[in-house]
Simulated assay, not measured.
Amino acid sequence: MKRAIPVVVLSIAGLVPVWRYEPSVGAATSTAEPASTPSAPSSAGSSSGTVVKGTTIQTEKGPVQVQVTFSGEKITAVRMLQQPNHPQTAAAVPKLVAETLKAQSADVDTVSGATITSEAYKKSLQAAIDSNGASAKTSASSPASASPASAAQTVSGSTVNTDKGPVQVQVTFSGEKITAVRMLQQPNHPQTTAAVPKLVAETLKAQSAKIDTVSGATVTSEGYKESLQAAIDAKG
């Protein structure tokens, strides 16, 4: 019986390191979590303002898409919605976002070692900027239609079938002035998504369907202008 006591004591003592080691596993898990959030560089204040998604750019490394928050024309935050799962991309994104907030444009330097992601980032970013600019111009033109709501007239253009898909616009007039253009149908294609804001902005500026074709989206541009002209003709 006297020999049994030391054995029990040693057994209990042997369990102590196990009890002390257990909490450190949880601690290691919690410190590793932030490394899996590559979109953390989004700037503060992204919950307010106008949020615009850029086009999805397909690259050999994977899709790239940004979401931009604007306060008027100012870029206040950029968040990655899609990006390649690669260490160089994860390292490049914070630099691209920081440069964007500083430059307030897509005219930022390519990050060394992440050229493909950088170029796609800039294209998606530019698309979001263009879209926000078109929306701002549309909003700016709305005070001119401060006359009674009954003076506004909305007309849908004809549906133009193209080899990329159907195109149809809806135009809002205040008297003879075009105050807004909305796409009812358009091809589901990144180049179309990028082209539409430019076409709308040009329409509001020209106040007619006599606008330039957007490079890289010729088919959509021609369909847009045809449907727009039909709406203008229907308005009379």
Rank of each mutant, 00 (worst) to 15 (best):
T100C: 03
A92Q: 15
V111F: 06
D233Y: 01
P23R: 03
M183G: 02
T59S: 07
T162R: 03
K177R: 08
V68R: 03
E202N: 01
E176F: 11
D233W: 02
A144Q: 10
L125F: 10
P38D: 06
V7T: 12
Q168P: 09
D109P: 08
S141C: 11
A98Y: 03
S112H: 15
T220R: 02
S11C: 15
Y224S: 08
S11E: 04
A195W: 08
T59L: 02
Q82L: 10
S47A: 15
V8W: 10
P143T: 02
Q168R: 01
F173P: 00
S174G: 10
G26E: 06
S227H: 01
Q207R: 11
E202K: 06
G165Q: 07
Q191W: 13
T179L: 11
V219P: 12
F173S: 06
A127R: 09
S174M: 09
K235N: 15
V196E: 02
S141G: 13
K2T: 14
S221D: 01
K102W: 07
S139W: 10
E202H: 07
Q82F: 08
R79F: 10
V16C: 03
Y121L: 03
T115A: 00
G236F: 10
S105F: 03
F173D: 04
S147D: 13
G26Y: 00
T69L: 12
P84Q: 08
Q186F: 05
S174Y: 08
K164P: 02
M80Q: 12
A103R: 05
V18L: 04
K2P: 11
N188E: 08
T89E: 11
D109F: 09
A194P: 04
A194G: 00
I57V: 14
F173Y: 01
E22Y: 14
T117E: 13
N161A: 14
K74A: 13
H189L: 12
S42P: 06
T50M: 11
E202A: 11
K123Q: 13
T193K: 12
A217K: 00
T117D: 14
I75W: 05
K102D: 00
V66I: 14
A209Y: 10
A231I: 05
S30Y: 01
S48N: 14
V219E: 08
D212S: 04
